[in-house]
Simulated scan of single mutants.
Amino acid sequence: MNNQLSAMGTQHSITKANFSQGKFHNDDAVPGTGLAKTLEIMWRFFTEKKVHTMPDTVLPVKSLSREQLLQLSDTELHLIKLGHSSVLLKVYGEFWLLDPVFAQRASPFTFVGPKRFHQAPISIQDLPDIHKVLISHNHYDHLDKTAIQQLNHKTQQFLVPLGVEGDLLKWGIDADKILSFDWWQELHTDKAMLAFTPTRHFSGRGLSDANNSLWGSWVIKSQYDSLFFSGDSGYFQGFKQIGQKYGPFDVTLIETGAYDSDWPDVHMTPEQSLQAHIDLQGRVMIPIHNGTFDLAFHAWYEPLERISQLASAEGIPLSTPIPGEVLSLLDAMQVQRWWQPLMPQSPLAPQF
């Protein structure tokens, strides 16, 4: 494969312009979370009564097989939401994985932490060979150590933000399989152009590595179609900049979930997610970062229901596929509101 790595523009060259005093920084400063605020949020998680934050019934999943994936045509771009923010693409014959998380818990531990609502539609063992794994940042619900190690033998390249290469090297990934990206850096291949673009977020997997690595989003543009993958982000003007530089997009995969008034700068409400889609000049929006893990205080179905109502009111096409459902960017997007029959009918259920 012919790969060409480049940095676009002097101000966004690989100079770590957002790196100082050993840390990466957002373009728009995010207020720091001190010890007192951290303890306050932890206290909420331990003491606040959660209502419908986890489903009380089995969620629908469509199982996938290796044969089914291999039979998908090589003449278009196929998209499959695997759960949360994990997405499998077949890009004109090549399989690419975005933020693959297959772990039972989004946690550094196997015995505690947010547990999956549903299984992945396919196991790592059953996946075909993967050409590229793209990572947005190193939080546990986006970077799964065990999954990366299991994918190593069948993956050609790992594309990661600056600093995340250190994690992969420690986990046994060969250095020649890793490409690290600064914001606005591009990779040109014979299938598509990829660009790593800014978000308003943070990084860290422990108590001592806060913002030691970068975070961001991914742009994928082929000759025929274009896709945006948000990773995690608070709402910021960067979405307009990305839209102006790389838009319009046929599909935007936008974070819509795990929002709360205690962390408004690093995650978006559904209203902000829809505005980000508009800023990006997107055509069809697919809400991600929902329906798999309990990471906030809202009901598990609330992000999907709120964004569905908002998009309908604004006349914006919204696609909400069941995990495992195969979509083609050339075909009509899936519009079934699968979560609505599973919403609890009780006075405690949030009203929108």
Rank of each mutant, 00 (worst) to 15 (best):
I124D: 05
F117L: 01
P121T: 10
I122D: 02
F158L: 07
F109T: 03
H131V: 03
Q150K: 11
S123N: 05
F158Y: 06
D144L: 02
R116A: 15
A120T: 13
Q149W: 09
I148D: 00
N152Y: 15
P114V: 06
P108F: 00
P114E: 06
L143A: 09
P128Y: 04
S123L: 07
I122V: 10
I124C: 11
H139G: 02
Q150L: 07
H153R: 04
N152W: 12
D129W: 07
Y140I: 04
H131P: 06
V112N: 15
L151R: 04
D129K: 15
K145V: 12
F117Q: 01
A147M: 12
S107G: 06
L143V: 09
R116L: 12
S123E: 03
L143F: 15
Q156K: 12
S107Y: 10
V112E: 15
P161I: 01
T155N: 03
L127Y: 08
T110F: 05
D129N: 13
H142G: 07
Q119C: 03
F158D: 01
F158H: 00
Q150R: 09
D126F: 00
V112M: 14
Q156Y: 01
F111H: 14
T146S: 12
L143Q: 08
F158T: 01
T146K: 13
P161M: 04
Q119P: 02
P108K: 09
H142E: 15
H131D: 15
Q157K: 09
Q156A: 10
